[in-house]
Structure formats: structure tokens, C-alpha cells
Write a protein that binds this DNA or RNA. Structure first.
Ligand SMILES: [Mn+2]
Ligand SMILES: [Mn+2]
Ligand SMILES: [Mn+2]
Ligand SMILES: [Mn+2]
Lengths: 240, 240
DNA sequence: TTCAAGGTTTAAGGTAGTCTAAAAATCTCC
DNA sequence: GGAGATTTTTAGACTACCTTAAACCTTGAA
């Protein structure tokens, strides 16, 4: 039931990659964790021994239910910690990942649950990612990205799926935090940039970045979502 | 400049033992860290290679200035974290040590300084231990223990040098937190227990425990200390 | 002054995790 | 249905710790 921090990071990586492709290839894990493929193969064997993954040689791995549960518990830790760092300690949203990456292995369940209570049992981290419950469950949501929006349709930023501190800092300078009100004004052809209104201000944004910004279109009838319960705006964490 | 968590724990242990006896014997370190003497000898070699300790074979080790600086920085982390856990998250004072023991290795300097700011740049941890400065300095203070007090002389608890959660919990149930007002009423002979008044309530306390409770006698003229600046009562952290 | 007790170090071996280089399997594309 | 490219796994080594058992100092008491 208790794993090393290295194992925890592997599980987290595999879980994330699994959202894209199952089974997960050795090389995908290697590049995400910045290790050689040989190291990953060796670790995969240990994970399989511990019944955390199933491995088909030369084919890849998938998490077992036990592995997935552990992964989600670590992801919960990571995201709760990230939110604590921005909300309580005033970190910028581009600086929280590395800190949380280490703390997630040292914090006890009790600490995480106390932090979650302090933060009001939050649903999303500073980047808008859903925080798994303490029991290890998350909804799988498929939201449109900014370039998927029709022109002039209002929407709200929900999640910014960007890791790089540089990019996050840049997006922050454009006010593109979860909760921001956005509207696509124009999409340049041939994969060109988007003209977007963010909280009323006109911005131009590289398509590559825009694709990582997930939004919820404003429903025309009601101000909130139609089928889902009213969203609580996560509040722009650590604005510059 | 950056050490493994194991190295950090060795430095911390050696620093603490050095306050009692210099040089520090292999076996003292082994028992404090719950390791075999052989493991300690091996590690001492590595520490000496890194110029963190000086080792005289068969005699013991002492920290170099670099080693002491590192030790004090880790002790600062540990104590700031402990205070955060009691003050901000409502932990009891007997539960914070283990948690801090792990977090101290994962938290960045920036995190610790932000916590310290949040906590008002505190001077003492929940047990009353002095928190080294960010620069890595602490005053060495020698306070009397409870059994050193003359009968009927009022004093204030400053530090409770007890590790064991059981004992801490017990002392907490007697209100013996830093800041408590105490007065020894009677000392049973032959190493017997002490009768002590704690915040006005009569208590009986084993001498062994009383010896770990450091106090500052109230000066008869002024309510505060005479030479030192007024102490800020650390507030009874996590009272039951 | 010797010698045994007790603490310390060395020797040998183990686990977890990493790397490079080589071997093996799979994929791609003609 | 291969040949060659690409991935994956194996083999062999290395670092950081830890353990037990044996050898080695230091010391104090006879
Ligand atoms: Mn991590
Ligand atoms: Mn995040
Ligand atoms: Mn520690
Ligand atoms: Mn303490």
C-alpha cells in the first residue's frame, strides 16, 4: 500500500499517458519522466510484481485497478498542494508544479485532507484540472478547446493544460486563467493564430497554445451550464 | 549544496547530539537514527568526503561549519513546518514531528520562507524550541528545568523537550504547553514526583518528565524578562 | 602490564533505481 | 514476404543506502 516516490511518479505518469493511449508504451513513460527506456522496462517489472500494472512485453502497460487508485490518490495530493501554494501562500501558477512534485510524496493523507478542508474542499487546481476525491475518483470530462469555439460565441476558460512555466507565465500575462471570459473573434487560416477577447481585452494567441485551453461555452438561455450544476468559478489564482 | 534526505537527517542528528557531547560517537548517531553502527560508519565517510563532518576514527565526528549550516537550515525547516501544522492546520503538538520529518526534505527554501511569513516570522516551534534564522543561526540558551525551580517561585514554560507522542499528549492534558504559568509546590525526595501548579491547577508530575520542561523564572520586579526583550507567548498550540 | 569488554570499522551481500551497449522483437514499406 | 528502421528488452555496471558477521581499536580493571 505504501510506495516509494519513484513508484508514485511512475504511476502518475502512466495514468496521464493512459488518458491519451492505452496501453502505454515504454518510450512514452521514458520521455515523460526523462529516463532511458531501459530504466522504465526495469521499473515496469517491479510495478507488475506489485500488481500495479499489467505488462505485455513489447506492447506496453496498463494500470490495474490498484495502480489506478494509487495514481489518483497521488494526483489528488499534487493538485491540492498546488492549490494551497497559490491560494494560501501566494505562489504564481507557474511555480507550483515543481514544488508539488516533491511534496506530494512527503505529505500524509491527513495533511492533504486538512489542506483540502482549509481550501474549502476544492474541485479544481490552479490550472483548472479536476482534483480527484479522497476516495480516488474523478469524472472524465471532454471540453472543447479554444479553437473549437465558433466565432463570437462567449465561453469561460475551465482548464489550462500547459506545463511549461514560461507558457503559463505568458498565458497569465494575457489573463487566461480558469474563470476568464473568452470569445474567439477570428481564426487565421492555415493553422495561424487566434484573435480572442479575454475579459473584454483583445488578444492574439498562437493556435498551439489555444489548443491547450479548455473552455465551457456559455449557454445562450442561462448564464450557467445547462445539464451540469452551476460551476464555481475557481478565481484567478496568483494573478500578476 | 544539495543533499539527500538521508544526509539531511544525519546532519540534524549530529547537530543535536553535538549539543550534548563533542565529538559525537558513532553509536549515538546509530541509536538516534535507529540504524546499525556499521551503516553510520559508512555514511560518516561520505559526509567527511563532502566536508560536512570531520571524523577521527574510533573517536567520533564533529560538524564542519558547512555541516552545521546545513543542519541548522534543516532544523529551521522542520520547526517552521511543525508550527504551520499546529497553527494553520490544527494538528495536535504530538502529531507534528513525524509529518515534519518527511516534509523538511521536500520543501523548498521559498516555501519555508513563505510559511514563516504567514506565521509572522515565528521564533519558536510548537514545543518551544528556537527556530534558527533563514541564515542559519540560533542562540544557545540555557534555561532551568522545572525541578531546578525553588518552591513557590512563579515561572513560565518555555520549551518542552519531549519527543514521544504519548508523553506530549500527556503533558498537553496537563496544560503544560509553552507559555503555561507554573510554580513548583513540592518536590518529593529520592527522585520522586513534583507537585506543580499549572495555570492555577494543581498537578503531580514524574521527575523524569519535569526535567525536560524548561522554564523562565518570572522576575519579581517586572512581569517580563529582565535583560531580554519581552517574550511573545507562543500560545498553547493545539490544546485538547 | 595485560587482557577482556565494548565500541568501531571492515567485509560481504542486498535492494532500489539509474545508465550504456548489445540483443531481440516489432513495424514499415517496397 | 522480407530488409531495414524503430522499439523494447537484456546484460552488465554504478550509486546510495542498509544489514550481519568478523576484525580491529581503546580502555579500564585486575
Ligand atoms: Mn513527484
Ligand atoms: Mn496543475
Ligand atoms: Mn527528516
Ligand atoms: Mn519541535
Amino acid at each position: 500500500m505504501k510506495h516509494t516516490s519513484v513508484v508514485e511518479d511512475y504511476l502518475k505518469a502512466i495514468w496521464g499517458l493512459q488518458q491519451i493511449e492505452r496501453p502505454v508504451a515504454t518510450s512514452r513513460i521514458a520521455e515523460r519522466l526523462d529516463l532511458t527506456a531501459a530504466a522504465v522496462t526495469a521499473m515496469i517489472k517491479r510495478l507488475a510484481d506489485q500488481k500495479l500494472v499489467r505488462h505485455e512485453p513489447y506492447r506496453g502497460v496498463i494500470l490495474t485497478p490498484a495502480g489506478e487508485l494509487s495514481a489518483l490518490r497521488i494526483i489528488r495530493r499534487h493538485r491540492v498542494l498546488e492549490l494551497f501554494l497559490t491560494e494560501t501562500l501566494g505562489y504564481e501558477w507557474d511555480r507550483v508544479h515543481d514544488e508539488a512534485e516533491r511534496l506530494e510524496h512527503a505529505a500524509s493523507d491527513e495533511l492533504i485532507e486538512r489542506l483540502a478542508r482549509l481550501l474549502g474542499e476544492p474541485e479544481r487546481d490552479p490550472h483548472g484540472s479536476l482534483i480527484p476525491t479522497a476516495e480516488g475518483t474523478v469524472d472524465r470530462e471532454k471540453l472543447p478547446a479554444l479553437p473549437d469555439l465558433p466565432v463570437d460565441a462567449p465561453a469561460a476558460v475551465v482548464e489550462v493544460r500547459v506545463q511549461s512555466p514560461d507558457r503559463l507565465r505568458y498565458l497569465g500575462s494575457l489573463d487566461l486563467f480558469p474563470g476568464a471570459e473568452v470569445m474567439v473573434r477570428e481564426q487565421a487560416p492555415f493553422g495561424g493564430p487566434l484573435s480572442v477577447e479575454v475579459n473584454g481585452a483583445a488578444r492574439v494567441l498562437a493556435r498551439e497554445l489555444a489548443e491547450q485551453i479548455l473552455v465551457r461555452p456559455a449557454s445562450r438561455d442561462e448564464p450557467s451550464g445547462d445539464a451540469s450544476p452551476a460551476e464555481d468559478a475557481p478565481g484567478k489564482a496568483g494573478a500578476a
